[in-house]
Amino acid sequence: EVTIKANLIFANGSTQTAEFKGTFEKATSEAYAYADTLKKDNGEYTVDVADKGYTLNIKFAG
């Protein structure tokens, strides 16, 4: 089991951190699915992958 950390960075400057656990593939998939649910209210997003994929910096356009 691994932990994927998602740093969520919103257009208004606020930030939030979420963690997803499971296999690497499952946790990564859940992180992207979570970002997709936030897209409606926060706009499109870009992802900067860090720490060999264990950290995702997800920035929303607003």
Rank of each mutant, 00 (worst) to 15 (best):
E1L: 06
V2W: 06
V2P: 04
V2D: 05
V2R: 05
T3A: 07
I4W: 02
I4G: 00
I4S: 00
I4R: 01
I4V: 11
K5I: 14
N7M: 11
N7L: 15
N7C: 05
L8E: 00
L8I: 15
L8P: 00
I9F: 13
I9N: 09
I9Y: 15
F10L: 08
F10T: 03
F10M: 10
A11M: 09
A11E: 09
N12Q: 07
G13S: 09
G13P: 01
T15I: 14
Q16A: 14
Q16E: 07
T17Q: 11
T17R: 12
T17K: 11
A18H: 14
A18Q: 14
A18S: 14
E19W: 15
F20S: 01
F20Y: 08
F20P: 00
F20V: 02
F20I: 03
K21T: 14
G22I: 01
T23Y: 15
T23A: 10
F24A: 07
E25G: 06
E25C: 06
K26C: 05
A27E: 01
T28Q: 10
T28P: 01
T28G: 03
E30G: 07
A31N: 01
Y32N: 03
Y32H: 07
Y32A: 03
Y32L: 15
A33F: 10
A33N: 08
A33G: 08
Y34W: 09
A35M: 10
D36N: 13
T37M: 15
L38R: 06
L38Y: 14
N42P: 01
G43K: 02
G43L: 03
E44D: 10
Y45F: 09
T46L: 08
D48C: 06
D48F: 14
D48S: 11
V49I: 09
V49T: 11
A50G: 10
A50H: 15
A50T: 07
D51P: 02
D51K: 04
D51E: 11
K52P: 03
G53H: 03
G53S: 04
G53K: 03
G53I: 02
G53C: 03
Y54I: 05
Y54P: 01
T55C: 04
T55M: 10
T55A: 05
L56A: 01
I58S: 00
K59T: 13
K59E: 07
F60Y: 13
A61K: 14
G62P: 12
